[in-house]
Nucleic acid binder design. Structure first.
Length: 609
DNA sequence: AGCACGCCGACT
DNA sequence: GTCGGCGTGCTC
């Protein structure tokens, strides 16, 4: 017998091996097989009869039987095709680490072909997790449960929470556990000795028996699409899984992705009813014309004094200097006239460029709107804000919480030993206030985020603003200093009104043909020699244009060094974009890189386009 | 991705 | 005269 095996390599095709008579091997099973000079772990994707004399033999099996059912194997193939990642790398990322010695495996749960899936349901609102738990309570008696969190910390917390509230046996499948434990957890779920599993991305295909209850926590979180194959959001994998096996999918999010909100409007997703939860009072301070060197407006300064005097704690949120150009006087931001995305300022070249269509021109020296002369990238560093705050609030303890101040250190003293009453930090600082949130959150200014040269700038800023408001202690307040006091992201947050954000945002996306209405792909060409990268990018563009139905933006050099070694091509198309691109990419992947240079492709990029 | 084979510079 | 740079090509 011959088996076709895929490996954790960026290779587009499987390798064939003969199966020695002493081994039993079938599709969905992991094996070790010789490849080149070494022996590697691979996944059997097909078995057939044929001429086997020229082939090398499978060395050994990893598990005694298949670890993926036929449906799961087929699903990994779909994921690979949809993300333009290799089948082997995709499968490898979605399986527990292989044990060193051959191990007795529990068979994967049987396929449930033909079951029609229920509509996924989206939980929003301040009590979304409680309402979800209540729902799960009624289901765990009869169904398997799989919960996927964006990060290990959340997976750990949810495992504890499920054990405590649902009183079911829940195993942890995330990489925060030792490899051997992860493998055992996987098998416990397959065997049915565990009723539920919690993990991160690597648990997406864990063997919860269909029809199962699948949960994706914080579905909008970009951590659901980390670097590395497969380049696809966990939400899409969960959705497809639920659809194929007839499982129920629950999504939670304070601020759903625009994609999910759109699907809810289209009736593809049901929105669980939510009720308003306590909300801080929000003051929006118009920062236009505010002195540039002064991070604290009188409104924020007074709010801080009041909060501190009343015994509360203050969190000042800083967003690092942006790359867009904004007018210090009127707040005008230079945007691409075609793409409506903020243009990125290059200090070295003193020019502005659109990350999408590559339009570029010299940076203006006066504001095109008000003729003001203070047209510069806008933003504050935590250190500078700290200096000012220390000088103005000498009586109070002040701490900084950001990547530089070493995660946790500033906070430990701030929350633990009754330390800092004023904390200056970036987004991560929100998590540091446990168990009680700060009484006052001041946004020095969210404008750099709002003006990011990124089509998702508004979505990101909104999510951050909302998360901060949710964290504020009851009866507390939020002060936002901004040059865009009327921006719908800010208004929607202030009014605790989700729809007030998504409605205009969807209109913007629709008008300009951005996701979720169209799909994007980002192709990166790397080469050590300048000519090849640019030349290869140009010739790739010709190939893509020849495909039809795909918008090909001009390639641009994105190398940071003066010598341009990286080029990027942005592509836009419909739902079938990966399928359309595959034929143009196949010849490149087939023979190494075909031409010299390396090609990477990311479907549905979520940053910096 | 590794790893091996294959042609041009600074060293014992 | 060699050791070694990584450019190119292959792995069932």
């Amino acid at each position: 017998m011959i088996v076709d095996v895929v490996f954790d390599l960026p290779l587009p095709h499987p390798f064939s091996y003969r199966v020695p008579p002493n081994l039993a091997v079938s599709p969905g099973q992991r094996v070790r097989a010789p490849l080149g000079s070494q022996t590697r772990v691979g996944l059997v994707v097909a078995a057939r009869e044929g001429e086997e004399r020229a082939l090398k033999a499978i060395a050994e099996v990893i598990e005694s039987g298949p670890i993926f059912s036929g449906t799961q194997l087929e699903l990994t193939r779909w994921i690979a095709a949809e993300s333009l990642s290799s089948w082997g790398s995709t499968a490898s990322a979605l399986l527990p680490p292989a044990p060193r010695a051959p191990a007795e495996a529990a068979p994967p749960p049987p396929d449930q072909a033909g079951r029609s899936a229920e509509q996924p349901e989206l939980f929003t609102g301040g009590d979304r997790e409680l309402r979800l738990l209540r729902r799960l309570q009624g289901e765990v008696e009869t169904r398997h449960l799989l919960v996927v969190a964006p990060e290990i910390d959340q997976a750990r917390a949810w495992a504890d929470r499920l054990r405590a509230t649902l009183r079911v046996s829940v195993v942890r499948l995330d990489s925060g556990m030792p490899d051997a434990d992860r493998w055992k957890a996987w098998m416990a779920l397959a065997r049915g000795t565990a009723q539920g599993g919690v993990g991160t991305r690597g648990a997406l295909l864990a063997p919860a028996a269909a029809p199962a209850t699948l949960v994706l926590l914080d579905e909008h979180d970009p951590a659901h699409k980390p670097p590395g194959p497969p380049r696809i959001h966990s939400r899409e994998i969960m959705r497809e899984r639920a659809r194929r096996e007839g499982s129920t999918l629950y999504l939670t999010s304070a601020t759903p992705s625009v994609e999910s909100w759109w699907r809810a409007e289209e009736g593809e997703i049901r929105r669980a009813a939510d009720s308003p939860s306590p909300w801080p009072s929000v003051s929006v301070v118009d920062a236009r014309g505010m002195l540039r060197g002064e991070p604290l407006s009188p409104v924020l300064r007074d709010a801080m004094r009041e909060t501190l005097a009343a015994g509360g704690r203050v969190l000042l949120l800083v967003t690092r200097v942006g790359s867009a150009m904004a007018c210090g006087e009127c707040g005008f931001v230079v945007r691409c006239p075609d793409c409506a995305i903020a243009m990125a300022f290059s200090r070295a070249r003193q020019e502005l460029a659109c990350r999408l269509c590559r339009r570029r021109h010299a940076a203006p020296d006066a504001c095109p709107n008000c003729r003001g002369r203070q047209l510069t990238p806008l933003g504050w560093g935590t250190e500078r804000v700290e200096q000012v705050v220390r000088a103005q609030f000498r009586r109070w303890s002040v701490a900084r919480h950001d990547a530089d101040s070493r995660r946790g250190r500033g906070v430990a003293s701030a929350s633990g030993e009754g330390g800092a009453r004023v904390v200056i930090g970036t987004r991560g600082a929100l998590k540091a206030f446990v168990p009680r949130g700060p009484s006052l959150v001041g946004f020095i200014t969210p404008d750099p985020l709002l003006n990011l040269p990124d089509l998702r700038a508004g979505e990101r800023a909104f999510s951050f603003l909302w998360a901060a408001a949710e964290r504020v202690a009851e009866g507390g307040r939020v002060v936002i200093q901004t040059q865009h006091p009327g921006h719908y992201a800010i208004r929607a947050m202030a009014d605790q009104d989700l729809a007030a954000f998504y409605k205009p945002e969807l209109r913007f996306r629709a008008e300009l043909g951005y996701p979720p209405f169209r799909r994007l792909a980002l192709v990166t060409v790397k080469s050590r020699t300048e000519g090849t990268a640019g030349g290869l990018a140009e010739s790739l563009c010709r190939d893509f244009r020849a495909l039809g139905g795909v918008t090909v933006y001009p390639p641009a050099s994105v190398g940071r060094s003066p010598r341009a070694l990286r080029w990027q091509i942005v592509l836009k198309g419909g739902k079938d974009l990966p399928a359309r691109l595959a034929p143009a990419l196949a010849p490149l992947a087939e023979r190494g890189h075909g031409r010299r240079g390396m090609i990477e492709i990311e479907m549905d990029p979520i940053e910096f386009i």
